[in-house]
Every structure is written in C-alpha cells, then in structure tokens.
Design a protein around this nucleic acid. Sequence first.
DNA 1: CGATGCCTTGACCTCCTTCAACTTAAGTGG
DNA 2: CCACTTAAGTTGAAGGAGGTCAAGGCATCG
Lengths: 207, 207
Amino acid sequence: MQVQREAPLSPGAFLWRPGLSFQGLAIVRSGCVKLYEESANGEERVLQFAFAGDLLGLEALASQKYESHAVALGEVLICRLETPTGSGDHAVDARFYQRLLQQASRILQQRMRLSRSGNPAVALLAFLELLAERIGRPVESNGRRHCDIQLPMSRLEMGAYLGYAEETVCRTLLRLQQQGRLQVRGRRILMEITPRSRAVAASTEPR
Amino acid sequence: MQVQREAPLSPGAFLWRPGLSFQGLAIVRSGCVKLYEESANGEERVLQFAFAGDLLGLEALASQKYESHAVALGEVLICRLETPTGSGDHAVDARFYQRLLQQASRILQQRMRLSRSGNPAVALLAFLELLAERIGRPVESNGRRHCDIQLPMSRLEMGAYLGYAEETVCRTLLRLQQQGRLQVRGRRILMEITPRSRAVAASTEPR
DNA sequence: CGATGCCTTGACCTCCTTCAACTTAAGTGG
DNA sequence: CCACTTAAGTTGAAGGAGGTCAAGGCATCG
C-alpha cells in the first residue's frame, strides 16, 4: 500500500476545515484527532475521535469536500495514503481498495452500534471501554488486571461526543467511581478489564 | 458490475439475522429495509432504514458475520452484488471496489451528521427531509411545491431510530403541524420543500 | 363484530440541562 | 519562587424536556 509520512502535528493544529477540498485519505499513526462540526449557535458536536490506526477522511471521499473540522489533540503523527491513479498495476489497486473496504466496513459497524443509549452511565462506560481497547495500558495491581487510560479530551468534548452536557459527564464519572466501576484522577482513568469489554464481539453469537 | 436479482421479499421477511454468516452485499431496488438490534431488555434499536439504491450489508463485510436484524417493511425488491473472486479481471475488480468505496463514503458521511441534536423537533425534521429526498413525491398545490411522503415505518420505529419514545414522536409531529411546518395524516406526511432541504450540502460552504 | 395494532392524549415524575459559583491545575511574568 | 491569569473540572440549585404509565380512539383484518 502506498504510504507517505508527514511532519508531526502540534496540539491544536488542523488537518482540515469545512469547505476544504478532499486531500486524500490518511491514517493516524499516533495521538488523537478530533472531528467535529459547529452548529448554528456555535456549539460544537464531536463526530469522531480517531486514534492510532484509524482511517481518516473516508466520509469526504464521495463529495470531495470536507464538511467537518479535524484538529489534533496533543501531538499527532499521520500518514497519507496515495490513492491509485488507475494508471498503475490494477491487481495492486484491487488489493488496495479491498483493504480500504475492509476498513470502511469496520468503521461503519462501529458507528452503527454507537448511539445514545438513553443512560449516560451506559454510554460513558461503553465509550471508556472503547478507549481502553484503543489507548489503554494494562496495569497489574493487587493481582487484578486494570486498564490505565490517559484521556486526550476534556469532559466537555466527551459530552459533545456522547450528546450530554459537561456537568453530566462529571457527575456520571463520579457516580461510576462511587460504584467502584472505575477510578478517576483528572484525565487519568483506571478501570477493570472485564470480559464484557469485548461485549461488542460477544453480541455476534447466535441466540 | 455483477448483479443478480432476487425474488421479492414480502412484508416482515428477514434478509438476515444476527449470527448469520455474511452473504454478500446487496442493493435495495424498491421498498424499505429496517436494520435493528435488540438490547438486553428486549427493546429494539433501529440502526438504519435502507431505501431504493442503498447498499446493504457493508458493515458485515469485515467480520463476515451479521450482527443485526434486517427485515422488510412492506414489499421489498433487492439485488445481490457478486463480490469479485480475485481470479477475474483485476481492472474490473478495481473499478468495482472503487464504486463500493464511493458508496461507503456516502453512507459514512450520512451517519456522521445524523446523530441526536438534543431537540426532537430538529431531529425529526432532519429525518423527514431525508425521507423526502429518498421516497418523497413532489406535489403541486396552490402554486406551492410540497412533498408527499408515505412513511413505511411506525412512530415507534421512528423513535427507536432517533432515540426518542413513541409518544415524543407523536407529540413532536403534532407540534410541527401546529407550527405549519408540515401536515400529518396517519403515515402520510406533506411538507414543503425548502432550499434548506439541502441544508446538508449548504453547510459545506466555507465560513 | 370483536380483536389486534397503531396512534393519540393526559398526568406525573425523573433525569438532564442550565446557570452560577467555586476549586483546582497549569502556565506566565515579575 | 510566588502572585496572577486562564482553562478545566467540580458542585449545588432550579427548571423543564422527555420518559413512563395509563386510558382511550381509530383503523384494518379475521
């Protein structure tokens, strides 16, 4: 697959802004990229948090226009994918597209099940478990397996993503901690890794 | 593109159920297919309403397993796409994949912006405007351009899709009617086609 | 004609939003 | 090194939007 590295992005740097014409697909190598759009009243709605390995920009491929903001949270490394020109080896192109489709499928599957569950505690836990899988570091303490997550985003941003107010995120985190489901210290979160963390995969089983 | 027709599906017929292994991509020729999953407490969450022209099953391509229910609402015609075996002409395959990616991009773009807006009136209007584009019939009355929509789904299903209760959908429709934004007669809805209907495209403009 | 879904409407109550004040943490310059 | 500034996080109180429960209306279908 044709890949091209790029200079690292510093915190707050934009990959693209709405209206900019499509620049090709990219993949996050490290760090976190936030995709968001601004509603009429100036509030921001987070569409996606992209982490290492995530494909970026697929949603702009069809229209050839970006419709969202993409900003780096912290240091970010990305690499761009060179789209086949069609003049090259078709066999290679086919393999390239096939892998992209696989990625697209995975993204779509994730977005399908990602929607508001009515309960902020459930939504937040699901979100954190997803983060645990992506950026969590396993930690052994007291013979128990925990996961150490360093949040790259603020409470406000989590809320803007999940569809809740900043304060609700705060209070929900507090409640989850009081229930012993996790430990919060600022942007550092410790949570147990349950077999349920792979609940997404488990739900695949026939009933 | 390799296409194969299939016998029509009668109302309530299932295209697939969770756990079934992937059967290839399909395209809706006519009618409406509802994708949903059941939560632990037996409630249903609608993931997608697919209409004529919509690609079906992409989210199952990566895992080769369906994780949702797909059921026909009313009479439905579909055709299946034969995935390239890899043994054929690679140039043809590349074109095939390229078109699929375009579709994937469009789907993803739609799903990105389709998320809860906090306000059921806004969410419902956005949903109806999308339906108007897909299954609405333009009607001329009193010199004004209206759009006639025949809803294929119940209020409950609309709610399960948008994340609201059945009653909220009812009341919101009523309020929208009282505001003169649309006319409701059971599953028949009349609404004006505003240039705003393409608000999605409009938001592409640079600021 | 009763039965079954679907739709509608009302009343109540919970939970989340909003507003506001305060705390904490991280820079920044004297 | 410490005041000052600014952003992020936390906590409380009040109000309202939407969920839930319940009852009734209105179709279609046997």
